[in-house]
Amino acid sequence: MKLETYISTYCHIRNNKILINGKPFIKDAFDTDFSIFSKKVYKDLNLSYPKFFKMDNLSKLAFLAAECVLNREKTNEDDNIAIVLTNRASSLDTDRKHQSSIQDKESYYPSPAIFVYTLPNIAIGEISIKHQLKSENAFFILDAFNAEFLHNYACSLLENNKAESVLCGWVDYDNEKYDCFMYKVSQIGDIKHTINKLQNLYKIKD
């Protein structure tokens, strides 16, 4: 059975800018590091979620993108939203921090709060906790954004009734370099969910 599937909302976060459905969400982009930028976005989204500040950069990036996508549409935990995320750097940015703390012979104090983020799928956990999403979730490490892979995975989940919608994305963060493209696929929406369309949307520039 082939289902007609659609993209209802999509979001880009890159170069200290956020685009929602291709339009700038924060007008005044400015030159700063990710921690300050992400804090500004947190405030602009009117979030009150202190746990945000305990997250590592990868989780912050994924979390903010998920907020942008999911808050556009009134969602609740009964909606059965699956999550499939991909990236290239895995959790390398935080792995490095943990690694340097255990290599330091003079000052050996590995931090549990850092170690818990040394897995990329913790970012999925953070989104799941915030939105109470208990559906299927998976994280894949790929060389680059792969529209075909995500398209097939999302379609398979929807066709097999594993989920009513799927939050998909590419969320890559390493050493202040980041790139995030997240979108929601279901049977409702204005944009046809095709491999070609995904490739084009991913490349959108502001």
Binding site: K54, Y109, P110, S111, P112, A113, V116
Partner: peptide, 11 residues
Amino acid sequence: IDALELIVMLD
């Protein structure tokens, strides 16, 4: 996790 972090701080 915060509790574990405080344990590291004590040390």
